[in-house]
Structures are given as C-alpha cells and as structure tokens.
C-alpha cells in the first residue's frame, strides 16, 4: 500500500464516526434554524430572520460576553496551575506517586457532582469556604461578580489536572540531552524553562489551550447547578430554549452561532499549531 493510500485508509474510520455523529446534528440545526416554529412543529421558512433576531438581542451579546470572559479567565488560571502540576508530577521526589494521585482527584469527580459539591462549599450555610478562609458572610452564589468567580474557581479546580496531564505528557517527550546541553551551558532553571521547555512544549500547550477553550466556551453544568442558570452563558441560554421553554428556532440559531464562534477560535489555534504539527503549511492537492 502506498503511503498516500495508507493515509487515506488511516483517516477513514475516524472521519466516518465523527462525520456520522457530528455532521448530522450541525446540518440539522443549521437547516432548522431557517424556520419558524409553532412549539415543536416547523412552520414558515424565514431565512436568516432568526439570526437577525439573535444578533440584535442584547441578551445574546450579554451571554457571549459572559462566556468569553469565563473562558479567558478560567483557561488562563487552569493553564498556570496545570503547568505547575505538570512540573510537580514530572519532578523526582519522595512521595511523588501520592502527589500524582492527589493532583488527579479533582478531575475524576463527575462534573455534575463537582457542581453540587462547590455549590455546598460556597453556600453561606454552613459556609465552608467563608469559614475556612475566614471571609465572613460572603454571598458567593447570589449574583454578579462573586457568582462568576465561584463558577470560575469550581471549573479551575476541576480541570487544571486535565491541563497538567497533557503538559506532563508533553514534558516527557523532551529529550534529556537538550536539558543536559543547556545545563552545561550554564543556563539557570528559569532560562532553561523559557528557552528549552516552553518552545518544545508548545504543541502540547496549544492542544491543552485549544480543548480547554472549546470546553469552557460551552460551559453549562457548573453555571446551571451552582447558580441555577443566573450566570447566563451561551449554553445556558441554548438549554433554556431547548428544555425550559422550548423554542426550537432560537435553540437552533444559538447552537449554530455557538458553533461558528467556537470554530473560529479553534481555527486560530490550529493555525498556531499547524506548522509544528503538520510540518509544511498547506501542501495543496
């Protein structure tokens, strides 16, 4: 088998599965978003009117803003802590195995449970967080900025190990010789980190940031459980029009808009990692 044929054969199973599962819902939503609905029944073709409605709705833009703010803040924090986790897990010291297990604990708690857990932790009664940290009676989950930060902290806690694991795996592929060489040259730890680790780790960093961003942009469970949907992200808004008060036209339009937004952000990441991973840029046909 030629390498080219092998490549096609290797790609086929993945794209068949993903195509069947993912393409159908997207095409379905895109098609349905062009219609008006009478409850669940499709009625008139309205073209892009649903999009005009959403794109001129302050509520939509507010959800976009909340979602993007949440993503930027939580992914940044998760990246920093994830990097620290990776360096710790990568280091040799007594009790390393225990440490690794401990670092992974947050990641193994199902999100739905983690949401409930953090809701209890943040609530004023009995006020675990408030009391443990001596904060007095802060109403974390009621509204506004504190509610935003409460959800950020829960997400941060839950998913930093995800970033940590990915970066740890990346660290493992950096050959020792590179460090040895740098050390021989008298580079300090900081210099080695900046000049050796970071560049060689870039592909893993990009993948971690990409998938964390994609996930954070779809944040739903934590916002729904911890704040009873008061923190209105795009997915919370979409779920409202799917389940709480069904309006399929709004739901489908939101789904497509979310898709476009996330895909756009994803493409930027892919362009960033492209050269590292794919080798040459576009090879053409």
């Amino acid at each position: 088998m030629s390498e080219r044929a092998l490549g096609r054969a290797f790609l086929t199973p993945a794209f068949v599965v993903m195509g069947l599962l993912a393409l159908f819902p997207i095409v379905y939503a895109a098609y349905e978003s062009l219609f008006d609905f009478d409850f669940f029944t499709r009625t008139d073709f309205v073209g892009l009117a649903n999009y005009v409605d959403q794109l001129t709705s302050p509520r939509f833009w507010s959800a976009v803003f909340v979602t993007i703010a949440f993503t930027v803040v939580s992914v940044t924090l998760e990246f920093i802590v994830g990097m620290i986790f990776a360096l710790i897990m990568n280091a040799a010291f007594k009790g390393r195995n225990v440490t690794r297990a401990v670092i992974l604990l947050p990641w193994v708690v199902p999100t739905v449970i983690a949401g409930q857990m953090w809701r209890y932790l943040f609530e004023q009664r009995p006020g675990y967080i408030n009391e443990w940290l001596g904060l007095g009676a802060i109403d974390w989950l009621g509204s506004g900025a504190s509610m935003f930060w409460a959800v950020v902290i829960a997400d941060w806690w839950k998913t930093a190990p995800f970033v940590g694991l990915l970066l740890l795996a990346g660290l493992q592929t950096i050959p020792n010789e590179v460090y040895e060489a740098a050390r021989v040259d008298g580079a300090t730890w900081t210099q080695r980190f900046r000049n050796v680790t970071l560049p060689l780790l870039t592909p893993s960093i990009v993948v971690a940031l990409l998938f964390r961003s994609v996930d954070a942009l779809r944040i739903f469970d934590l916002a729904d459980i911890m704040t009873n949907a008061r923190l209105e992200t795009l997915s919370v808004l979409a779920q409202r029009s799917i389940v709480r008060a069904p309006q399929p036209d709004i739901a489908n339009t939101l789904a497509v808009l979310t898709f476009v937004m996330i895909m756009g952000i994803g493409l930027i990441f892919i362009a960033m990692m492209g050269r590292d991973v794919v080798g040459e840029p576009e090879e053409g046909s």
Partner: peptide
C-alpha cells in the same frame, strides 16, 4: 391562543431586556 405569536413576542421580550 396562537403559540406562534407567543414565540415571536417572547423573542422580542428577550431583546428588550
């Protein structure tokens, strides 16, 4: 009575918020 109007007007409510 006609839920289609409900949906449309609700969309307007959303926008007004």
């Amino acid at each position: 009575e006609d839920p289609e109007d409900v949906i449309e007007e609700e969309a307007d409510v959303d926008e007004d918020e």
